[in-house]
Design a protein around this nucleic acid. Structure first.
Length: 571
RNA sequence: GCCCUCGUAGCUCAGUGGAUAGAGCGUUGGUCUCCGAAGCCAUGUGCACAGGUUCGAUUCCUGUCGAGGGCGCCA
């Protein structure tokens, strides 16, 4: 059990008793709010519950606080007091702390407290870059956040599935095929690439690969002799159809390779084309029609998304009978519902926010409401302080692979998760490299490596079971503030994980780890914490300090692993 | 024009309705006879503005101003 969970239960009981005694009723669904104190000298936790209840109870916060304290089981605490406007500050006893931390490892500890938060079957979709070119920098941001978030959610006990939607169907795939055809033809005669084709040089590279790897059918194959008699329009049609799927496959393969390098994992790559083949796309239009949410307009079928807060109704089936992208996306999300997911979360780029209302509306029309979209704001990529121009069509853009090649994955991933997704991110490549030695991610890794260095010095195995009762007892925790502060901060780790699982704000984890590293470094520099010396003068105390180090190392390593960042033992 | 996101220190940004609003970078000055100095210590006139809700607002609501993005039978 986490200390916070324990405290909430104790406070809920006490509030109930207090309410009864005061002759008032607690609000329905009352949950005592528990915060950390601004300074652990005030106590381990604080609750503003007396102030919150002041209005309902029509009593002064102080009076309520006193009633709650009267009813509180004080055997868990060494100190409880009322402070300020009516805060209740609580300090747990050594015994309570010992009970809370009796586990062999941080991993086991996390497993142990998994039952404290609700878990439902949940699907996360992120990145989902179009298979028409290399991934850009926003994809890298989404990959970092999506991957780190889902790893953390899993650790908190959530049942998470991670998916990448592949838009391998529709106009843009046709344009991709055509782009290949033009590049192929260009090898023989000068023709200009149409404006709406993909302009990037990468098409040429993929083309060469396809021409080498695959046996080009005679109908497509070009030779010097054939050019003169070629029926170009017929050939383009055939060649476009031929190259499109091969191009998609080649590009997707490279995307997957980059994601793997980036340590971003997925459980499944879901093909849009597979939905069309099954007929699931047009089928969903029928379902919406049955619900009365489709109207006909100029021969097209239009979803009444304005009923769900959208600006205008949206075409889902074109007048020529072809479905729009939106309809496929509705079918895809409905497919997620059919697979039994109780919560659907998508991370989208900033250019898609206008799309939320119509998709959420369609899901609502189909009876599903637990749908959440997180918008990853744009990344302004800077080089030497100057913005890097990104344009897929002009072929001038910074790819995710460029980024990985320039900057270590550990640093990239840290930079992307340390800022909340809602803010526009300035990512200065030059700065990221120039400052690399002072980079926060190295600071965290360094603290971890330093602990291993200490362990090597004194020949102590950091992987053996944590003996944290010993830290509290023999560690003389309350005599040295750096020890106590570090220890109590480490105890918050599962609570931080739980918070992230609830609010999806992954940036709290790197911040927590950074602060953990800071507290450890302060501890390390404390004159009284020189482990080699303490082991000489008082072996019990020395081993207690080593246990505290091992605890720190495990928290850092585990936390970094959620972020997909390595935890080196030496640097 | 409509919609979305954002506005916190010189810069980049944390901050779950609570106590004295924090961190990194930058600046300036200290600091290794030492388990790792990639370190540590010191150094700050800051919540865009105006209303509202609340016992309490940087946080929630409304408006103004400013920055970015989105408004297709493209995906």
């Amino acid at each position: 059990m986490t200390l916070r969970f324990l405290l909430r239960n104790l406070l809920a009981q006490a509030a109930k008793v207090a309410a009864k005694k005061l002759g008032v009723a607690l609000p329905n669904g009352f949950v005592a709010r528990v915060d950390y104190t601004p300074n652990i000298k005030l106590g381990h936790y604080a609750t503003p519950v007396a102030m919150e209840l002041a209005k309902v109870f029509k009593k002064s916060p102080r009076q309520i606080a006193e009633s709650i304290l009267d009813a509180l089981d004080k055997s868990y605490f060494t100190k409880v007091e009322i402070a300020g406007a009516g805060f209740i500050n609580l300090t747990f006893s050594t015994k309570t702390l010992s009970n809370a931390v009796s586990f062999p490892s941080v991993g086991k500890w996390l497993k142990n407290v998994q039952g404290e938060i609700e878990s439902e079957k949940i699907i996360f979709e992120y990145v989902s870059a179009n298979p028409t070119g290399p991934m850009n920098i926003v994809s890298a941001r989404a990959a970092s956040v999506g991957d780190s978030l889902t790893r953390t959610l899993k650790a908190a006990g959530c049942d998470v599935w991670r998916e990448y939607y592949v838009n391998d169907f529709g106009n843009q795939v046709e344009m991709l095929g055509l782009s290949f055809a033009y590049r192929y033809l260009q090898k023989f005669v000068p023709v200009e690439l149409p404006e709406n084709c993909y302009q990037g040089e990468y098409i040429k590279d993929y083309l060469e690969k396809i021409l080498t790897d695959e046996k080009t059918p005679d109908a497509i194959l070009l030779t010097k002799e054939r050019i003169d008699t070629l029926d170009k329009s017929a050939w383009f049609l055939e060649a476009g159809k031929y190259f499109a799927p091969l191009g998609v496959r080649a590009i997707l393969t490279d995307q997957q390779k980059d994601l793997k390098t980036f340590r971003a994992e997925f459980d499944q790559f879901f093909s849009e084309a597979s939905l069309h083949q099954k007929g699931a796309v047009l089928e969903i239009a029928e379902k919406l029609k049955v619900k009365g949410k489709i109207k006909s307009e100029d021969g097209a079928q239009v979803f009444l998304s304005t009923e769900y807060g959208d600006d205008k109704d949206r075409v889902v089936v074109r007048s020529d009978g072809r479905p729009t992208y939106l309809l496929a996306d509705i079918a895809y999300h409905h497919n997620k519902v059919e697979r039994g997911f109780k919560r659907i979360v998508d991370i989208w780029g900033p250019d898609h926010h206008g799309y939320i209302a119509r998709l959420a509306g369609a899901l609502k029309a189909l009876g599903f409401e637990n749908f959440k979209v997180i918008i990853a704001q744009q990344v302004n990529l800077l080089e030497n302080g100057e913005p890097v121009v990104m344009s897929k069509r002009l072929g001038k853009f910074q790819t995710m692979r460029d980024l990985i090649e320039k900057i270590p994955v550990d640093v990239c991933r840290y930079f992307f998760v340390v800022r909340s997704l809602g803010t526009h991110l300035d990512f200065d490549l030059t700065l990221a490299l120039d400052q690399s030695k002072k980079n926060p991610v190295y600071y965290i890794q360094y603290a971890h490596a330093r602990i291993h260095s200490i362990a090597r010095e004194v020949d102590f195995g950091l992987t053996k079971p944590l003996e944290l009762e010993r830290v509290i007892g023999a560690g003389r925790l309350y005599e040295f503030f750096e020890r106590e502060e570090l220890f109590l901060f480490l105890l918050r780790f599962p609570e931080v994980v739980q918070d992230i699982a609830r609010n999806y704000e992954i940036q709290r984890l790197p911040e927590y780890l950074y602060q953990t590293a800071t507290l450890f470094t302060a501890f390390y520099h404390g004159k009284n914490n020189r482990i080699k010396d303490v082991l000489q003068s008082n072996p019990d105390e020395g081993f207690a300090l080593l246990a505290l180090c091992a605890f720190t190392a495990q928290v850092l390593e585990t936390g970094l692993s959620f972020l997909g960042i390595s935890a080196p033992k030496e640097m």
